[in-house]
Design a protein around this nucleic acid. Structure first.
Lengths: 208, 208
DNA sequence: TGCCAATGTTAACACCGTTAACTTATAGCG
DNA sequence: CGCTATAAGTTAACGGTGTTAACATTGGCA
């Protein structure tokens, strides 16, 4: 029932893929169910067999986005705390820069308020979890000050999210002239978060 | 020609105000030119005498938002660097929390890409300028490390913007349980930014 | 006073999301 | 193997949208 081809093969997947391509190229405001259906060669109401409404489709795409983000973050090595933290921050920002339209859909807020679509919320939390785990490891290893975990992760997330959003929307004019901005920012934050025992011992360890 | 009342008084202002109210209450996606015109008691095409299209109206509203944000930031006192920095960060986040829908319009990115509407860009820069001036004062006074100004302001803006966006979209679950989150986050960043000479001398000066 | 330009009007076009009512093809079962 | 329930598609239609064209009206000014 779910695997074999009905009239058109699995429309659900086809719509999902096509819509994802449109979002990545032109943003979520360019998504039109009718246009999507016409492109695929199916009538518009057919889509309603697979998606409750336009918002649900967008939510599904946002879920894909969070899963892709999570995969990116998971690829960051666990090696020394400082590299791991900077690495995951860079990976996060780079994802946003690579997929600005998708990222905007994920965090647009206007699209879907939290609590409406549980699977979307879970996908977001799962991505955030990777970041939190990295911070927790660094903290547990004694590299970071023994501050509340929630405070540290919230700080880290705020920083990378804010930087992502500001850069992809062009609010930071000299972002191109300063390619190491993300790294500098992350380092700057770390200065305040590392334990005093680690101070001055690892500032230049990434450039041997 | 611009001041006296024509057929309906100054429609421009009336549309602007009404639209701003709608955005603040229901978000920019709830803006409908036809509905707006009907509410005001005028035909829909009449609006096109004052706004090129829907996007231009939204841009105008975003400009108002940036000006309101700027006013908020300007009210922060200049007194000691640490208080000024934390104060302006809190004021920024509080604005976003007070006007979530307006804030989303301003930074939605989907609404208007930079470069299209010069006045909108200028309004954004003007608001950002207040933040930059505060950082510059703190840096010039020797309170902060002598790092590049662009780096410091980008960091500060990223942090407060990220925190704003994440909280108003409900991504930080325990935001309510932690009302001092914004202050804690700002302090954490400051730890990494203050000059060593100022370290440990001002951590508790705000609670005498 | 008479004209021009600013400001409004109605009618219409081409979309859009969504629902209702109907048709078709498939999967599973007696 | 044939039948039927149902999943998956169809067309027609409703109400809404932004936007443009063509026309009407009003007010300020020469």
């Amino acid at each position: 029932m779910a695997r074999t081809a009905y009239h058109h093969g699995d429309l659900q997947q086809q719509v999902h893929d096509q819509a994802l391509a449109v979002v990545r190229e032109h943003g979520d405001s360019a998504i039109s169910l009718r246009a999507l259906a016409k492109q695929i060669g199916v009538s518009a109401p057919a889509l309603y067999r697979h998606f409750a409404d336009r918002e649900s489709l967008l939510a599904e795409l946002a879920i894909s986005g969070f899963e892709a983000l999570r995969q990116r973050l998971l690829q960051v090595k666990h090696t020394p705390p400082r590299q791991a933290l900077i690495g995951i921050g860079l990976a996060y920002v780079r994802f946003a820069q690579d997929e600005p339209n998708l990222y905007r859909l994920m965090f647009g807020g206007q699209v879907l308020p939290r609590g409406v679509h549980p699977r979307l919320d879970d996908a977001g939390k799962a991505a955030f979890q990777v970041l939190e785990d990295t911070v927790e490891r660094a903290r547990h290893s004694g590299y970071l000050k023994p501050m509340p975990l929630a405070l540290m992760t919230a700080t880290a997330w705020s920083l990378v999210h804010g930087l992502s959003q500001l850069t992809i929307d062009g609010h930071l004019p000299n972002a191109d002239a300063e390619p190491h901005l993300a790294e500098g920012i992350t380092s700057l934050l770390l200065e305040g978060a590392i334990a005093d025992t680690n101070r001055a011992t690892d500032n230049n360890e990434d450039s041997p």
